[in-house]
C-alpha cells in the first residue's frame, strides 16, 4: 500500500462558534501519495473551508489533520506549509513581486534559501509552467491563464508534496484551463505530486483518480468518478456522461453504465450509431 500523505480524521469546523450549525462536520478521508483527488460540492458545502483548514489558515475545532506525517497544529503549521501548497481562485491579489521571477522567489525568500539555489529553483519552476520567457514581466499585466501559472510556479518552487487547488482553474478561459490542467497532470504523473483539486467543474473532476463529494459540510461519498457520477444522479454530470444519458434517452442500445470520454468515443466509433 502506498503512503498516505494526507490524513484527515473527525474534522469539525464552524466559523461562528455560537452557531450549532457547523461548516464542516466529521470529515474523514485520506489521500495517497501521487493521487489526484477532486473535491466537489455545491456552493457553501465547505469546499474552500476545507482547503484553508488543510494549510492551517483556519484553525479546526476538533479532529486532526496530518500532512506528510506531521500533525497540523499551531506550532507545526509553518513546517506543514513546506509540504503543502495552496493555489487560490484569484491569483491577482496574491502577487507580492513586481516581476514574475520576484514573485516566484517570494516563498523561497521566506525559507531563507541562499541566492544560488533560489535562482535555480525559480528557473525550474518557471520552466515547469512554461513561463521562462516572461520572467521579467509584471505579473499583474499578464493574461488570466498566465497569472495563474505564475501563482502555480510560486508554489511549485517550494516543491510541496501536496498541491491544493482551490477553484484555481475556474476563472480561466477554456483554452488556458485545458493547458494548465495538462501541465498539472504531467506534474502529477512525473514527479508524484499529490493533487487535491477543489472544483465545481465536473469535467475537471471526471479526470481525477477519486472524487470526494461534500454536501452541507459532510462528506457524503468518496470513490472513482464513474461510481460517484452514476450513484448521484442529481449531480451535474461531466460532458461524456451527459452525452451518454442524452443518447440513452433517444436509443436503448446505449450502455447503461458511466463512461469516460475515451470509452464513449470508442463506443461511438464502434456502434455505427444511427439516429
Amino acid at each position: 500500500m502506498t503512503a498516505r500523505v494526507v490524513e484527515v480524521s473527525n474534522l469539525v469546523f464552524g466559523y461562528d462558534k455560537r452557531d450549532k450549525e457547523q461548516t464542516l462536520t466529521d470529515i474523514n478521508f485520506s489521500v495517497n501519495k501521487g493521487e489526484w483527488v477532486a473535491v466537489i460540492g455545491h456552493n457553501g458545502s465547505g469546499k474552500s473551508t476545507l482547503a484553508k483548514l488543510l494549510v492551517g489558515l483556519l484553525e479546526m475545532d476538533d479532529g486532526s489533520i496530518s500532512i506528510a506525517g506531521i500533525n497540523l497544529n499551531d506550532n507545526t503549521k509553518w513546517e506543514v506549509r513546506r509540504h503543502i501548497g495552496l493555489v487560490f481562485q484569484n491569483p491577482e491579489n496574491q502577487f507580492v513581486g513586481t516581476t514574475v521571477q520576484d514573485d516566484v522567489a517570494f516563498g523561497l525568500e521566506n525559507i531563507n534559501m541562499p541566492y544560488e539555489e533560489m535562482n535555480n529553483r525559480v528557473e525550474e519552476a518557471l520552466k515547469m509552467v512554461d513561463l521562462s520567457e516572461l520572467r521579467f514581466h509584471d505579473p499583474s499585466r499578464l493574461s488570466g491563464g498566465q497569472k495563474q501559472r505564475v501563482a502555480l510556479a510560486g508554489i511549485l518552487a517550494l516543491r510541496p508534496s501536496v498541491l491544493v487547488l482551490d477553484e484555481a482553474l475556474v476563472m480561466l478561459d477554456p483554452g488556458s484551463r485545458r493547458e494548465l490542467l495538462l501541465t498539472l497532470k504531467q506534474l502529477n504523473k512525473s514527479s508524484d505530486m499529490t493533487i487535491i483539486s477543489i472544483t465545481h467543474d465536473m469535467d475537471e473532476a471526471a479526470e481525477a483518480d477519486r472524487i470526494l463529494l461534500l454536501e452541507a459540510g459532510r462528506l457524503v461519498d468518496s470513490g472513482k468518478p464513474s461510481d460517484v457520477f452514476s450513484k448521484h444522479q442529481q449531480l451535474e454530470p461531466p460532458f461524456s456522461e451527459a452525452l451518454r444519458r442524452m443518447l440513452k434517452r433517444q436509443k436503448n442500445t446505449v450502455p447503461d453504465t458511466y463512461m469516460t470520454e475515451e470509452e464513449l468515443v470508442n463506443w461511438l466509433c464502434k456502434s455505427h450509431l444511427k439516429m
Binding site: 506549509r81 496574491q94 521571477q101 517570494f106 531563507n112 541566492y115 535562482n119 510560486g154 517550494l158
Partner: peptide
C-alpha cells in the same frame, strides 16, 4: 480589505512569517 485578506492568506501559505530571517532574491 478583501484584497488584503487574500494577500495575507497567499503570503502565509507561502510561508511568510514576520520577524523571521529571509533571504533576498533581488541582489
Amino acid at each position: 480589505l478583501n484584497r488584503a485578506e487574500d494577500m495575507a492568506n497567499g503570503m502565509e501559505t507561502r510561508g511568510y512569517q514576520s520577524g523571521e530571517k529571509r533571504s533576498t532574491f533581488r541582489q
